[in-house]
C-alpha cells in the first residue's frame, strides 16, 4: 500500500476511493460469559473507504469494541462477513493493526524502538535489521518521541506509551489502523493533545483508521465519518459526516448542533446517563 501521498492536503483522498477497503456486511457477533451467550452486535453493516477516519460511536454495551475485535480477527461473526479488500477475514494479521486502550500493549521487555522493530520483523514488513531500524526511527520522530527510542515502556507516561503504540501501528502501514478507545485512559489535557497529533499524522499520510470511542465530542473531532450505534445488542443507528468538524469548531453552533443531534439519538433509547459522555471535554 503506497499511501504516502504527503503532498495531498485536505480531506479529499487522491487514490482509488470508489472501492471500500473494509466491508462489514450484516455482522452478528456473539460471545459467551460464564452464564450467558451475549449478542454484542446484530446485523451491523458499514463500508470504510481509503483515508477514512471512521468512528464507531456508542454507549457501553453497543458492541463497538467487540466489532473491532471481529475486524481484527480475534473472533468470528456468527452471521454476515467482514471483508478486507474483498478477502474475508479469518484470523488476526498485520494488515490490520490494533491500538488498544491498555498501556500494557507495549511489550515491557523491549525498548520503544525494539517494540516497533519487533512488530515490523514479526509482521513480515522488513527483511533487514537496518531497514527496520530506519523505519522505527522515522515513526518515533513522527510521534515526537525522539530521544526516547532506547527507553523501556515503564519509564514512559501514559500519553507517551500510547504514542509508541500508534507509532508501532502506523509503522506497519496496515490497510486499516484499528484504535480501540486509545485515549480513554489518558487525562483530559493529554487526550486533547493526542487527538491533535493523530489528526496531524493523518494529514501527513492519509492512513485509514477505524476509531472506537464513547465520547461524542471525540468522535466529531477525530472522525470524518461516524457510525452511531445503539446498545443491547449493538445495531446501526445512523451514519453521519464529521469531516468538516475538528478542534477549532468545538463550541461552535455547527459543532454543538451535531453533538446535540447525536446526543438526542442516543438518549432516545433511555440509555443510562453515565454510559455516554456527551460533554466529555477532549
Amino acid at each position: 500500500m503506497a499511501k504516502r501521498n504527503g503532498s495531498a492536503a485536505g480531506i479529499k483522498p487522491a487514490a482509488d476511493t470508489t472501492q471500500p477497503i473494509l466491508n462489514v456486511d450484516g455482522v452478528t457477533l456473539q460471545y459467551k460469559t460464564k452464564e450467558h451467550l451475549i449478542t454484542a452486535t446484530y446485523r451491523v453493516g458499514f463500508d470504510v473507504y481509503p483515508a477514512d477516519r471512521f468512528v464507531l460511536l456508542g454507549p457501553s454495551g453497543c458492541g463497538k469494541s467487540t466489532l473491532l475485535k471481529g475486524i481484527a480477527g480475534y473472533m468470528k461473526p456468527v452471521e454476515g462477513a467482514i471483508r478486507l479488500k474483498g478477502r474475508e477475514i479469518s484470523e488476526p494479521g498485520p494488515d490490520r493493526v490494533m491500538v488498544f486502550q491498555e498501556f500494557d500493549q507495549l511489550l515491557p521487555w523491549k525498548t520503544v524502538k525494539q517494540n516497533i522493530i519487533f512488530a515490523l520483523h514479526n509482521g513480515g514488513k522488513t527483511d533487514t535489521a537496518a531497514e527496520a531500524e530506519e523505519i522505527a526511527m522515522e515513526y518515533i520522530t513522527k510521534v515526537k518521541l525522539t530521544g526516547f527510542e532506547d527507553t523501556f515502556p515503564h519509564m514512559l507516561s501514559g500519553g507517551m506509551k500510547q504514542r509508541v503504540a500508534i507509532a508501532r501501528g502506523m509503522a506497519m502501514e496496515p490497510d486499516v489502523l484499528l484504535m480501540d478507545e486509545p485515549f480513554a485512559a489518558l487525562d483530559a489535557l493529554t487526550r486533547l493533545q493526542m487527538q491533535k497529533e493523530l489528526l496531524q499524522l493523518w494529514e501527513d499520510t492519509h492512513f485509514t483508521v477505524l476509531f472506537v470511542t464513547h465520547s461524542i465530542e471525540e468522535a466529531l473531532i477525530v472522525g470524518s465519518r461516524i457510525l452511531v450505534m445503539s446498545p443491547h445488542p449493538g445495531q446501526v443507528k445512523a451514519e453521519l459526516n464529521a469531516h468538516h468538524l475538528n478542534h477549532d469548531n468545538v463550541g461552535d453552533k455547527k459543532f454543538a448542533k451535531v453533538q446535540q443531534h447525536i446526543h438526542d439519538m442516543l438518549f432516545a433509547d433511555r440509555i443510562l446517563e453515565e454510559d455516554v459522555q456527551p460533554g466529555a471535554r477532549g
Binding site: A72, Y74, E91, P92, G93, P94, R96, V97, M98, F100, E102, D104, Q105, L107, F118, A119, N122, G123, G124, M172
Partner: peptide, 20 residues
C-alpha cells in the same frame, strides 16, 4: 492485551510461546 498484540503481529505456535 499482550496475547492479542502477539497474534496481531503474526506470532503463532512455538514462536508465540518463545517470543511472547
Amino acid at each position: 492485551t499482550q496475547r492479542m498484540v502477539g497474534q496481531n503481529y503474526g506470532l503463532r505456535g512455538l514462536v508465540y510461546v518463545a517470543k511472547l
